[in-house]
């Protein structure tokens, strides 16, 4: 899932203070699962912003709505009947959702309530970690199912580097060395000879180096 976290409240208050009518929109997908922008978080943020406005003596009208998904035009359309009553949309979706609001409603301010962080999963309640960098050319079958792009700080294809100490990364001792994890997996799988294979330089055109990406599935388009 896409993992995000709410921006500092003071930043959101500063961003929204010029507006008197605010539509706060949450998303039922990834940001609900990572407790950043679902219905509950929208409710809390709306209460906090209402309190901030009341304290400052500013009039503020808020409507809360949480859509099934904010990265799909059909759901973004659901706010069209009432969006004209509001000056701005405060999006509790990931930055994809915020941009969908900006694209769909060109005359409305689309404000981000979240910092969209990474693609990852949960390690335990309240803890999430990055697992995919979206490089566009998966090599997990060659690295024992551990991604060197997402989990090695240097994105090395033939690691580890000299900074790996006791299984930890030199960037931060709390980060496990991605290549140590790969080695441990290869040992567990009985595939240590695979480690000796030298990986060729990666073609980063499938990643961000090729510019913004798009996938077109002819069999699905109408």
């Amino acid at each position: 899932m896409i993992v995000a976290e709410q921006k500092p409240l003071k930043e959101i208050i500063a961003m929204t203070s010029p507006f008197k009518k605010l539509l706060i929109v949450g998303c039922n997908e990834c940001v609900t699962v990572c407790h950043a922008g679902g219905r509950k978080e929208v409710e809390q943020l709306a209460a906090a912003l209402a309190m901030a406005a009341q304290k400052d003596g500013r009039p503020l009208e808020i409507k809360e709505v949480t859509l099934e998904r904010c990265c799909d035009p059909e759901y973004i359309e659901q706010v069209r009947p009432f969006i004209d009553q509001y000056e701005a949309v405060l999006s509790c979706a990931c930055s994809v959702g915020t941009q969908y609001f900006a694209d769909t409603y060109p005359t409305k301010w689309a404000l981000p309530a979240l910092n969209t962080s990474f693609m990852g999963g949960s390690l335990a309640q309240g803890i999430w970690a990055e697992r995919c960098a979206g490089c566009g050319n998966c090599i997990l079958h060659e690295t024992g199912g551990i991604c060197p792009i997402a989990r090695c700080s240097k994105r090395m294809l033939n690691g580890p580097c000299g900074g790996s100490t006791g299984g930890h990364c030199e960037v931060n001792p709390d980060i496990p060395c991605g290549w140590q994890l790969i080695w441990d997996r290869l040992v567990a799988l009985g595939r240590t000879p695979d480690y000796a294979k030298i990986m060729a330089a990666k073609d980063w055109n499938t990643s961000r180096d090729g510019g913004p990406r798009k996938i077109v599935r002819e069999d699905l388009t109408i």
């Binding site: 500092p8 409240l9 003071k10 208050i13 809390q44 906090a48 309190m51 901030a52 304290k55």
Partner: peptide, 9 residues
């Protein structure tokens, strides 16, 4: 408590 601090309450 964090929220109230941010709100200055």
């Amino acid at each position: 408590k964090e929220i109230l601090d941010d709100l200055g309450l």
